[in-house]
């Protein structure tokens, strides 16, 4: 009897403690204060990092034997499935927003453009890493072709996939957009990008975490502000799950 009571008291106490902790964690003020950490991290990393410092590049001997597919495995929309069935022959990438000359680029045109190849590490926010070889068009080249406005501050990537019923999208700022390793990859490990890894085109922004590497890129939009685009957080995971926009660590 005594043991049971003491045990109940323990469980009850733990429950109360949990409830108290959960209240602190859920408080909007606390959450707001905590985002100061993300801001400090971004400022500090930008301060100590050379703008063009390259993410480490590896050799073919370092490639992951099997590169884990993550997120959407195949977009479900009829449009996307038609493009995939046609091997993306009629698919086009739209480049618009704050640019002088909006572009519409075919898969063949993108593959014919100057390309950069890099063997880099992909780091998921969950903690795992995989090394792959990516080949694609430097984003800077596409943005210059399109005549990017000097007032544009962010580049938004609209994707073909819905994740949990919401459209996937991501965004980066101009420091990352013009970084030499930021490419629109159409080739992975010397093969055309597979559907699982984001065919026909995925973003590689090598100094950030995996959820920033948007797959199934359909449209690129240059904007002055992220407000007004979907939830305004700058990406699917930022809007719906509270992940940091600057995924610096």
């Amino acid at each position: 009897m005594t043991i049971l009571t003491r045990r109940n008291a323990l469980v009850g106490g733990a429950g109360l403690m949990l409830a108290g902790c959960d209240r602190i964690v859920a408080s909007p003020t606390v959450r707001k204060v905590l985002t100061l950490g993300e801001k400090a991290t971004m400022s500090a990393q930008r301060l100590v990092t050379d703008r063009n410092a390259l993410a480490p590049e590896f050799t073919r001997a370092d490639l992951s034997p099997s590169f884990r597919v993550n997120g959407t495995r195949a977009p479900g929309s009829a449009d996307y499935q038609r493009h995939a069935a046609e091997n993306f022959a009629n698919w086009r990438l739209a480049v618009g927003g704050m640019v002088a000359h909006p572009l519409s680029l075919s898969h063949a045109q993108l593959r014919a453009m100057p390309a950069r190849s890099q063997i880099t590490r992909h780091d998921c926010v969950e903690g795992w890493s995989a090394i792959g070889e990516w080949t694609g068009v430097p984003l800077a080249l596409v943005l210059r072709h399109a005549g990017l406005s000097a007032n544009a501050r962010y580049v938004v990537f609209h994707c073909a996939d819905d994740y949990a019923g919401k459209p996937y999208y991501e965004s980066i700022d101009m420091v990352d957009a013009f970084h030499p390793q930021t490419i629109l990859a159409h080739t992975m490990n010397r093969q055309p990008l597979s559907v699982g890894h984001g065919a026909p085109l995925r973003l590689r922004v090598e100094r950030q975490l995996g959820y920033k590497q948007a797959k199934y890129v359909m449209r690129i939009e240059a904007v002055a502000s992220l407000a007004g685009i979907h939830g305004g957080g700058g990406g699917y995971w930022e809007d719906h799950r509270g992940y940091q926009w600057y995924a610096g660590i």
Binding site: M17, A26, V33, E38, A40, T41, V125, G242, Q244
Partner: peptide, 24 residues
Amino acid sequence: PPLLTIPSRYDLAAARQWHFFFAW
């Protein structure tokens, strides 16, 4: 289990906010 973690229920995004604030 929930008694050991912040937050108590699975939330990687919130755990990262706590971790990288207190890391500073």
